[in-house]
């Protein structure tokens, strides 16, 4: 078995374990390449089906292609698709693009807060109605006790400390210094009332593995990842005011893989185009606060 098959096997095992053990489970789908691979792995794990709701946090500053792509595959793959948002911050224009907050605070409002309250069920959830082919407010308000997240250990320092099954307490706090042990493929699947567990099936994947798997499986990804002729492409996707494309000629998946392996990106951090990481505290501060 080659390395990609091993990664796939472990991720499938983790997804099935999560599905078996958590009654109220969801998977975060950011529309990016990683969580799209994760969604594909769920189709592998469940033989073409995705019996887990997919949750997307819509900041309303996502690049429009991302939302088109999300809704297209939500319908095509018969996904139980849910989105949430911070309607108060959006209505009050408490955002960075509106000039009223810094980047980190904007992330906190539009992503961390929206995520926290969407997961807990305190704020409205919108579900794709497959007959009406549009979103309707969801009646389900139960908090999700298992949240599947597509983080990778190689992305950034704090993520390398994660477990496959990582508990969060009532306040969403991740106690990085005192995490449960994980061995012999036995994970933390028991949790006290009020707490929840984040599940990380992609922890051992690298950026290159992700692209190699996309190539092997022919997984459709957002066109923004490819150079459309202007010599630029996105390497990591986020909100348009804070995400910059990189200069790249790569038009296809094999060209991206080539670029990562030997070309210009082999030694440059993937999230270098994400402006919020550069601010004080950066991703680690956000993550302690519940950012994925």
């Amino acid at each position: 078995m080659d390395h990609l098959y091993k990664l796939e096997a472990q991720s499938v095992y983790i997804l099935r374990e999560a599905y078996r053990e958590f009654k109220s489970l969801c998977m975060l789908w950011s529309i990016g390449k990683d969580s799209t691979v994760m969604l594909w792995l769920a189709r592998k794990a469940f033989f073409g089906h995705v019996p887990i709701p997919l949750v997307h946090i819509d900041t309303h500053y996502k690049i429009p292609e991302m939302i088109e792509y999300r809704d297209h595959f939500a319908l095509e793959w018969n996904l139980n698709m849910i989105y949430g948002e911070n309607c108060e911050a959006l209505a009050g224009k408490l955002t960075f693009p509106d000039g009223n907050t810094d980047r980190i605070t904007c992330c906190k409002y539009l992503k961390s807060e929206a995520l926290k309250h969407t997961l807990s069920g305190e704020w409205p959830r919108y579900r794709m109605d497959h007959e009406l082919r549009r979103y309707v407010q969801d009646e389900g308000r139960d908090p999700y006790t298992g949240v599947i997240v597509g983080v990778r250990a190689d992305e950034e320092g704090s993520r390398s400390k994660e477990r496959y099954f990582s508990p969060r307490d009532k306040d969403n706090v991740w106690d990085v210094g005192d995490q449960p042990p994980e061995f012999w493929n036995q994970f933390k699947t028991d949790f006290a009332p009020g707490t929840h567990v984040r599940i990380h099936p992609l922890l051992d994947w690298t950026e290159q593995n992700i692209w190699e798997y996309i190539e092997r499986e022919k997984i459709p990804v957002v066109s923004l990842y490819f150079n459309q002729g202007e010599g630029i492409r996105y390497r990591s996707l986020g909100c348009y005011p804070c995400t910059n494309p990189v200069n790249s000629e790569a038009r296809t998946v094999p060209e991206i893989i080539d670029e990562l392996k030997s070309g210009k990106f082999s030694n440059i951090a993937e999230r270098s185009g994400r402006a919020q990481d550069a601010e004080d505290g950066g991703l680690e501060t956000l993550r302690r606060d519940g950012y994925m």
Binding site: P180, P181, E182, F183, W184, Q186, K188, D190, F191, A192
Partner: peptide, 10 residues
């Protein structure tokens, strides 16, 4: 090989 869970924790 097995693990033992005591009160939610391995």
């Amino acid at each position: 090989r097995f693990v033992i869970v005591d009160n939610y924790e391995i």
